[in-house]
Structures are given as C-alpha cells and as structure tokens.
Simulated scan of single mutants.
Amino acid sequence: MLSKNIINTILIICCPFIVLLALGTWQLFRLNWKNNIIAKMDMPVVKMKGGNIDDFAYRKIVVEGVLTSIDLYIFAGMNSYYILTPMLLSSGEYILINKGLINKKQMRVNIKPKKIIINGMLYCDSYKNKLIKNKAKDDVWPWLDAESISKDMGVSFNRCVVWAADKLDDNIAPATLSKPRNYHMQYMITWYSLALIWLIVCYVKNKSNFAVDPKHHKST
C-alpha cells in the first residue's frame, strides 16, 4: 500500500503535468483549425449560391445580389471605419458586404441600390464580446458582429460577412481579409516540452521517495 507521502508526491507531480499536457493538446486543436482556415483561403474561387452559406466560410467567392443604399459603420481604430452595406440575395436573405475602409470625413457615402456581382471572401466568425453590448452610437458599432447589428436594426442578416475584394466606390479602399497568424505549432511544442521537463525535474528531485526499502521487500 502506498504511503501518504508517496500519494502526495504523485498528486504534486501529476496535476501540473496534466495541465501542461492539456494546454499543449488545446494548441494542437487550434493548429488544425488554423491550418483548415488557411487551406480554405487558398482554394479556387467559387460562386456562392443558395444553401448553407456557412459552407463557404473563408472561401474566395463570387456573390450576386442587390446592393442596398444602407450604410453601416464599424469602428476600425485610428479614426477609420469599415463601411458595410446589406445585399439582398436571390434567396431573399440579406448578407452584409464589407466594402472597405473610410476615414471619419468620408462618412455618409450614399449609393443607390443596384444589382451587382461582387468578388470577395466570406468571413463567418464575427467578434463577440459578452461583457459589453455591441450597441450603435451615432450609427457606428464598436465591432463587427452581424447578430447584434441585426437585433439593433430589426433586420435579419446572415451571420457571415463578405469582405469585398472589388473597389465598389471611388472613396472606399477595399479591406483585405489577411490570413490568420499561426503560431500554434510553437505554442504546442512549448507546452509539451514544459510537461516533459516538469516530469524530469520531479523524477530527479523525488526518485528517492519511490525507492523500495529492502527491509520491507519480501522475496518469494
């Protein structure tokens, strides 16, 4: 039967090891997720039709519909704003088109509704802050979240947003959706290495605790 001292030593060793191992495994899942996103962004352009729009997430797409005259503004930092316009698809669904970046002096750009074909990339991971409500002030939202914008305006928008690659207005510079930074391999190696180092250090410092006392060893 293990002594209380040995049990306590095992617990002290195992708890940090399990935490470090879990952190490394979590980074492994994050690595696969990021690699999947990057792979989708490198795939050929596809025309987005009906069905589940989420299936085209992070794909280069071509979308056709009626671009409305409504302008929505999302704060992008340093007196700049993303300007978004709802597009009515043939399915009867509205989706937000991120036309690009403008500065404060260029706000209130008016564009008449028109049927248009847009090249862009579909982004379906809107930022959500559960602690602070994404409430518009002076028609400007703090961050991009299609769901909260829908509730605020009383109009149902698809949660995905098309980042237009085309220049849709002379006063608007298209905002490129860049590939996500992927450092999860380094993070994973770091956590797994720390877990291994922890085991080695604990073994060196506590190996005497696990030594078998010859006096209590019974030979058969």
Rank of each mutant, 00 (worst) to 15 (best):
A76L: 05
D152Q: 06
K130L: 15
K40F: 11
A175E: 10
S219R: 04
I197P: 10
Y123T: 08
W33A: 14
T176I: 13
Y94K: 06
F29E: 07
N52H: 10
R59F: 02
L84K: 05
T190S: 15
C14V: 15
K133G: 09
I200P: 08
M41P: 00
M78N: 14
S148E: 11
L196R: 01
I189Q: 07
W198K: 09
S208R: 04
I6A: 08
R30Y: 07
W33T: 11
Y187C: 08
S90Y: 02
K205D: 10
V161S: 03
Y58M: 07
L122G: 12
S69W: 04
V19I: 14
C14S: 13
R159D: 07
G100L: 05
I97V: 15
Y123I: 06
D213C: 02
M41F: 00
A211Q: 06
A39C: 04
S80D: 06
N5Q: 14
Y123N: 13
N158G: 05
V109L: 15
I83W: 03
A173R: 05
Y81S: 03
N103V: 13
K115D: 14
N36S: 14
P86M: 11
K40W: 05
Q186H: 11
A195E: 03
I197L: 15
K215R: 13
F17E: 02
K99S: 02
L23P: 03
I111C: 12
M153N: 15
F17Q: 04
F56S: 14
F29H: 15
K135L: 09
I111V: 14
V19D: 01
F210V: 00
K151H: 11
A211W: 02
S80Q: 11
K105T: 15
K112V: 14
S148M: 07
I149Q: 08
V46W: 01
S193M: 01
Y94T: 01
V155I: 15
E93F: 01
S150I: 10
N209R: 10
V204D: 05
Y192G: 03
K179Q: 09
S150Y: 07
